[in-house]
Amino acid sequence: MNARAFLVRGLLAGLLAGLAAFFVGYQVGEPHVEAAIALEDAGAADSHSHGEEPEAHSPAADEAGDEEVFKVSRDTQRTWGLLTGSLTIGLAWGGLLALVAAGTLGRIGRFLPGQSTAVISLIGFVSVALVPFLKYPATPPTIGSGDTIGHRTALYFSFLLLSVVVAVLATYAACRLRERIGTYGGVIAGIAAYLLVVVVAALVFAPVNELGDFPADTLWSFRLSSMLTLATMWGVLGVVLTGLVSRLYARETAVAQRRELAASL
């Protein structure tokens, strides 16, 4: 087992996870994105660009000045655009997750490689996707002003970073405590510490609410579909990487055993 073997498997898992997220996002999420854009077009329609609008306008376009405004049709955004986004995000998180799994291999409790990879994947989903979503949930097009996108992005990524850093520290603390007070107490202490810090941070971090009078049913459906897309990505990532790592370990163990047997004859 080495870093390269993990990275390759992480990228493969990321590819599959990106594809799966695209299919779920396209099937489950896009109808609500379209519904939100229909509302936007029906309303004042001055906030953001969506291909077909004659005057494309987006936050970055303001600073772009005399540069050409790049327009992508809704059909492309919905298909190739979503596919590109899902694949690149899947590949990136897949590779990062695999390297973390490689680093924690044999270092967090007495887990077999597949088991520690599964645990790290779960921690990854919770700290990277689930908890930031609960504080700053995804919003459909129409919601959100171009003037605040910088502020909202900074808040989102600060919270994401905090969540990941605290998850790392809590996992480390749980592993150390486990040696002294046992696995049960160590794991509970780690989870409790993570939740405590994250909940306090969620109370301290500035709220974002630009919903206005956006219809609640469309918002709920969109957010549910967004969470499903994220859960699909991380679920496939974790399941595939765990399977691949387990197989690699089984193969290497078999080879080692055969070698040992040959040496003993």
Partner: peptide, 15 residues
């Protein structure tokens, strides 16, 4: 613009 829908559905701030 190209990855716009991915940003929304994967929960990243947009719009």
């Amino acid at each position: 613009e190209w990855v716009h829908d991915g940003r929304h559905l994967l929960g990243y701030p947009c719009h």
